[in-house]
Simulated scan of single mutants.
Amino acid sequence: MNLLFLLVYFVIILVVIETFVILFRLTGLKVEVSRFQVISMMTGTGFTTGESELILGHPIRRKLAAFLILFGAFSLAVIISSISQFLSKGLRLTEILLGAGAIIIVYCTLKVKGIQQLLSKLFNQELKHNVELADLPIRDIFLKNKEDTLVNLHLYGESQLTDSTLNQVFPQHGSLEFVVLFIERGDVMIRKNIYDTTLHEGDHLLLFGRKAVIHQTFSHDIHLMEEKQKELQDQPGEI
């Protein structure tokens, strides 16, 4: 009987995981990211990864995450208490099967394409009505198109942009599909006259636009930045 209970409980956990994977996917999160984060929240392990920001910065995902964390905490207590009740023959298997059946019905309902479209529409409406743009993760604001990207370009002494302006290096930048959002110079954010500002070693440029255009236009500086970062990672640590 104990083995049967464990099997039923295992099925319940799997169904809950897949149910919330569907719900997170309907908010725009990738399936592989959703599944890992759902398991992390239920078990209380691994949720401190960088991908967790995709959930913490999204109001609807935060609500789903809160339920999962609570479910994970209480489910462990339930399985321990339930096994002890089984040992004392105080819990009926029918109750467990009914609970498992209800969860499976919810999961099967969410698998229906029409239901998914309806929920996706409701999620988007809630975001439009109740959420400020600043509350959303940067990926949800800027990276709506798979062809777009954000690049934090670090300038070095050998960069082609160093000691020059963007207008000097790329006089036709207006016809290209990218923009420079700002220049970070130490603690200073430069937002005015960006394209006429002389760039210095150590500056950071936040670029937004077509991935192919940015990587082609700034190929030299991006390649240099990647090499410098790789050299830094390969340096042996100090003893």
Rank of each mutant, 00 (worst) to 15 (best):
M1A: 07
M1S: 05
N2Y: 04
L3F: 08
F5N: 04
V8T: 09
V8H: 04
F10C: 03
V11E: 00
V16T: 11
I17M: 07
E18M: 11
T19V: 04
I22C: 02
I22W: 03
L23E: 05
G28T: 09
L29M: 15
K30W: 00
E32V: 11
V33F: 03
S34M: 08
Q37D: 01
V38D: 00
M41V: 00
G46P: 03
F47D: 02
G50E: 10
R61A: 14
R61Y: 00
R61W: 03
L68C: 08
G72E: 00
V78F: 14
V78P: 01
I79L: 07
S82E: 09
I83M: 09
S84K: 11
S84M: 11
Q85P: 01
F86Y: 11
L91Y: 12
L91P: 00
R92C: 00
L97A: 09
L97T: 05
G101L: 06
I104M: 11
C108A: 14
T109W: 13
K111C: 12
K113L: 12
I115N: 10
I115K: 00
L119F: 14
S120H: 12
K121F: 14
F123L: 12
N124Y: 13
Q125F: 14
K128W: 02
H129Q: 14
V131R: 07
V131D: 01
L133H: 08
D135Y: 08
P137W: 12
R139L: 08
D140G: 01
I141L: 15
F142E: 03
F142A: 12
L143P: 01
N145V: 05
E147I: 12
T149R: 10
L153V: 06
H154Q: 11
Y156L: 06
G157E: 10
G157K: 15
E158N: 14
S159T: 11
S159W: 10
S164Y: 10
T165Q: 06
L166A: 06
N167R: 12
N167Q: 06
V169L: 11
F170Y: 15
P171A: 07
P171E: 02
H173K: 08
E177Q: 14
E177D: 15
F178R: 08
V179K: 15
V179M: 10
V180D: 02
V180M: 06
V180W: 07
I183L: 07
G186D: 02
V188G: 03
K192D: 06
I194W: 04
I194V: 15
Y195I: 11
D196N: 13
T197N: 03
T198M: 05
H200T: 03
E201S: 14
G202S: 06
D203N: 01
L205P: 00
L205M: 01
L207R: 14
G209I: 07
A212L: 08
I214Q: 05
H215N: 10
H215P: 02
T217Q: 09
L224T: 02
M225V: 03
E226R: 14
Q229S: 03
L232Y: 12
L232S: 13
I239A: 09
I239K: 13
